[in-house]
Design a protein around this nucleic acid. Sequence first.
DNA 1: ACTTAACCGAGACGGTACGTCGAGTCTTTCT
DNA 2: AGAAAGACTCGACGTACCGTCTCGGTTAAGT
Lengths: 198, 198, 198, 198
Amino acid sequence: MPPNQQRRNPHSYAAILDATFEQLTSVGYQRMTIEAVASMAGVGKATVYRWWPNKARLVVEALSKRCELPPVTSTGDLRHDVRSLVERAIELMVKTPLGATLPHLAGDFDDAPEARVELLEWLGPTRASQRALLYEAAGRGDLPHDLDAGLTLDLMAGAIMYRHLLGDDLDDRFVEQFVGLIVDRQLPRIGTPDERLI
Amino acid sequence: MPPNQQRRNPHSYAAILDATFEQLTSVGYQRMTIEAVASMAGVGKATVYRWWPNKARLVVEALSKRCELPPVTSTGDLRHDVRSLVERAIELMVKTPLGATLPHLAGDFDDAPEARVELLEWLGPTRASQRALLYEAAGRGDLPHDLDAGLTLDLMAGAIMYRHLLGDDLDDRFVEQFVGLIVDRQLPRIGTPDERLI
Amino acid sequence: MPPNQQRRNPHSYAAILDATFEQLTSVGYQRMTIEAVASMAGVGKATVYRWWPNKARLVVEALSKRCELPPVTSTGDLRHDVRSLVERAIELMVKTPLGATLPHLAGDFDDAPEARVELLEWLGPTRASQRALLYEAAGRGDLPHDLDAGLTLDLMAGAIMYRHLLGDDLDDRFVEQFVGLIVDRQLPRIGTPDERLI
Amino acid sequence: MPPNQQRRNPHSYAAILDATFEQLTSVGYQRMTIEAVASMAGVGKATVYRWWPNKARLVVEALSKRCELPPVTSTGDLRHDVRSLVERAIELMVKTPLGATLPHLAGDFDDAPEARVELLEWLGPTRASQRALLYEAAGRGDLPHDLDAGLTLDLMAGAIMYRHLLGDDLDDRFVEQFVGLIVDRQLPRIGTPDERLI
DNA sequence: ACTTAACCGAGACGGTACGTCGAGTCTTTCT
DNA sequence: AGAAAGACTCGACGTACCGTCTCGGTTAAGT
């Protein structure tokens, strides 16, 4: 889409993404303004608009270039793997601007459908590695052979985001309850997680 | 919070909530404008600002006064009850502005914490009736006696909202997979739900 | 114009005029608001509007009831009389809100013609006494027998207001120059007034 | 004072001054609105506020750029010169928005002292040429050699403005009375001007 | 090496909506 | 019935960003 990728000033490019990520972190998606990003990046507004057609695209690219999404790897221990899956997802949603940004971003997807595509492309590999982890366990017989890994992961991500949005805790109990659901097929229960694992 | 509840003009009050709900439905939270709401309601902007300190509060009140949240009731048939629970939740998220609005609203909760409280107060009774339905099943022995109904329902709501945001389907398969998870403790599987129930 | 003069609350009436005059003095005509006047007078806005149709009328009445306009009296010494005429006019324009208010008031006369009438009615006796002073001198032969006293006084008042508006001084030199013009028919000259009187 | 004179759009600049002058003429200073000026000029409100800090400054500039103030020139005939001086001043006060605007403007000088300066700078050359005309007559011996031309002219302008404000006539009699005062040192008299000139 | 075209910063532009203020009207409540 | 209190509609205020646009100045490519 941009005019000529090669003539692009790499300093400006990096500075804009940095500024965007910084603003996202400090004031959030709503209060972030292109004007502030440009000024913080020491860049003309037009330079931002030259390379990104709208806020959603800019933000998705900033997230994708400045948020690390380390792929999960299987250890063969399902309980351990699922636990770290959940923990990592919580970390991503709570410690990076992604969790707070995603909902607003989603709202702009109506106007900027390509932003949705780009976001999914970025998240794709991570989600694939998460699915792969589950499929491997399914291959070992630790999970149903025809598990719907996508939905399973959406249950996890959805619950995390939902609770995060409503301001609820995402503590160890949550982790263990979800692990219990997947690994032990136990519905979440009141009480210490440890009890439930007995 | 507002100046004097008794002197309030009920016509204006109703018109403002109507206009807010209408705008929410037609253009969404982001594009909804206090100015447009006021003008559509045939009301001065100041009248809106007199009674609601910000957009979030206005929207929460409009949702709570204009969205019906019929309490769910138990029939004794767990599968049927859970299914209608999920169906009703999907309906709420997809057919009313609530689903599309919630995430944006949540983003404004940082600035308007009372809006979160008000939202939770509105949702409270419904969530309570949903929990009650699950507790009743637990009492009958159809679900664990110490089930964490809150988390169970958050799993449901979270998945619905998450999928809705990302533009995924929320079809019968989803419903049956979730019902299967709760009632049969079967993890979601690929394939027709019917198969899975065998 | 007001509904019923007799049932008028004299406390409110006085308080409103006091507050108007006070506001006029402290913040000026432009920045004076009916709201502030009402609140300062401990009175409802409607009470102000009940008795005065607009700001101009209210202000004219406040000026006429709270500004003293002592009639000038002749001593037989023309130079002395004219000097005290000018000094008193300057005092009125500079030390009371009248000078600063008159121009703005005049601007509102287009919308409130009765305010002009009322103002002139108030000023009438004073101007008449000023004219009488000049006519008396004319009778003595100290001034032309068919002097146009109205224009003569307008020259004085106009110059005072004009200089006041443009921020120029209205010092003793001005007084003596004007006195010299009337009494000695000397055009104003540069130099100390005393010199000119020799 | 404004950001950068060179980058200024001359079309907008001219359009704003035109609109301001037009509004001044048609609805007057008080009812003139920045919003209306901007919209009539086909310009964003911010563009007006970018270049003018307040209404007073805008109006002064509009007057100074859109009101012609032709310098008066001497013919050697004092009576004729003074007469045309007065006539021209009346014309300026009565036929242009200046007369009606000046008083209101003056009221805003407290908040915008630079507007006063700018106004005086604009009026400066004209007043200088008027003074020059009188000084020339003084040089010829037709007027006192040390005439205070400034005050003489303020007498004229003040009387004109004062009468204009109070709604009085400014007819030929006024002109001749003032000419008589200056040229013949006759105080203004009742009766036809012609009589007085005998 | 020298044009020349694209990018760059800067920031003015026409707009839209903001949240506030005061005008002038109207209704409710109290005296 | 008059007055206080104050909610109401309306319209303008001055501000903040939007996304577009012109400016010169620089930089890298292609003759």
